[in-house]
């Protein structure tokens, strides 16, 4: 019994020691390096590249997800088979492998040659010329990967809509596509927006994998800078701060979008319309009112309605 206690105390000591070392960073962490590079040109460019990459890939990936939904319901067995293989492959292999793979294929993008000659990024004011073919390859890899995951999110969103909706649309003379466009998809969007927001959060961070092929993203720039004056820990901190800023910023935007799109199935008339500071803190405004400003939290079950 004594021996066991002894063992755990030793273990605890080692763990505490480890964390103390990390926190004090062995007395070798240089915060001034962090501050002076936080807004370095290359870092800012890296942030911009990261954002562009994330937005483009998420958008294309979402479109792919939607296309896969319809492909899965196709009459052609080949198409249905293809969807199964696609999803299996892109969810079954690591994103990093997919990025490396597509990057190898990048020179094969003969179309990209004239684009590379254009030196787009230099023209746009970037301090270095980012290889367009690598950029495109990365974007494609991210999009294809995301598409596989979005397929399930889209499917779940659309299936969440009661089949009676499409039946009502059809009974009024709408075709399947018209019913989808006007009735089902708008409602499905409300269900899809929250997981889509989470996917984008993930995407912002996944772009960091692209550093291995040098497309000038945030992590890549941070590493390059770190190598140049041998301050890895400090520059990783810069990268971490920026990623945190991006994901936090997105979190706020996401909350706003979800409010507008009414992602939580509340009757629009009952939506909490108080100013944001009141909503967040629960404090009453000058006019008083309850914790929700006098607005009921749940939609009332109206008389005469069987649930």
């Amino acid at each position: 019994m004594n021996a066991i206690i002894q063992f755990f105390l030793t273990l605890l000591h080692a763990i505490v020691q480890f964390f103390v070392t990390i926190v004090t960073l062995n007395g070798q962490f240089d915060w001034s390096r962090v501050v002076e590079n936080l807004f370095a040109r290359i870092i800012i460019e890296g942030v911009i590249i990261t954002i562009i990459l994330a937005v483009l890939s998420q958008f294309i990936g979402s479109v792919i997800g939607l296309l896969l939904y319809f492909a899965r319901r196709s009459d052609l067995a080949i198409l249905r088979r293809f969807v199964g293989l696609y999803v299996w492959f892109f969810r079954g292999t690591p994103l990093l492998v997919q990025i490396l793979f597509l990057n190898e294929l990048a020179p094969a993008l003969h179309l990209a040659q004239p684009l590379i000659q254009l030196h787009i990024f230099l023209k746009l004011g970037f301090s270095q010329d980012i290889p367009v073919d690598a950029f495109i390859a990365t974007c494609i890899a991210l999009s294809l990967n995301e598409g596989a995951y979005m397929a399930e999110i889209v499917r779940a969103g659309i299936d969440a809509i009661d089949t009676g909706q499409m039946e009502a649309a059809k009974s009024l003379g709408m075709t399947y596509w018209l019913g989808m466009r006007r009735i089902v998809l708008p409602q499905a969007l409300r269900v899809i927006v929250p997981p889509l927001g989470n996917e984008f959060n993930s995407m912002l961070k996944s772009t960091s994998l692209a550093y291995v092929i040098g497309v000038g993203d945030l992590l890549g720039s941070s590493k390059a800078l770190a190598s140049s004056f041998f301050a890895f820990l400090e520059l990783y901190t810069v990268a971490a701060i920026w990623y945190l800023a991006l994901t936090t910023g997105w979190g706020l935007i996401q909350a706003q979008i979800e409010r507008r799109v009414n992602a939580s199935n509340i009757d629009p008339a009952l939506l909490d319309k108080r100013p944001w500071w009141q909503r967040m803190t629960g404090l009453r405004g000058p006019t008083g009112g309850g914790p929700t400003g006098g607005v009921p939290i749940e939609a009332p079950v109206l008389e005469g309605e069987r649930r």
């Binding site: 009676g164 039946e167 009502a168 009024l172 003379g173 709408m174 006007r182 409602q187 409300r190």
Partner: peptide, 30 residues
């Protein structure tokens, strides 16, 4: 189907539209 009207047990109104918009939707779209 456009010439046959159907009324369902569970109503199946379009929740993202007002009553007026529900009634207007099919004539406008179809």
């Amino acid at each position: 189907r456009a010439e046959i009207g159907m009324v369902f047990q569970r109503f199946n109104l379009f929740p993202h539209m007002t009553a007026l918009e529900n009634v207007m939707e099919a004539p406008i779209q179809v």
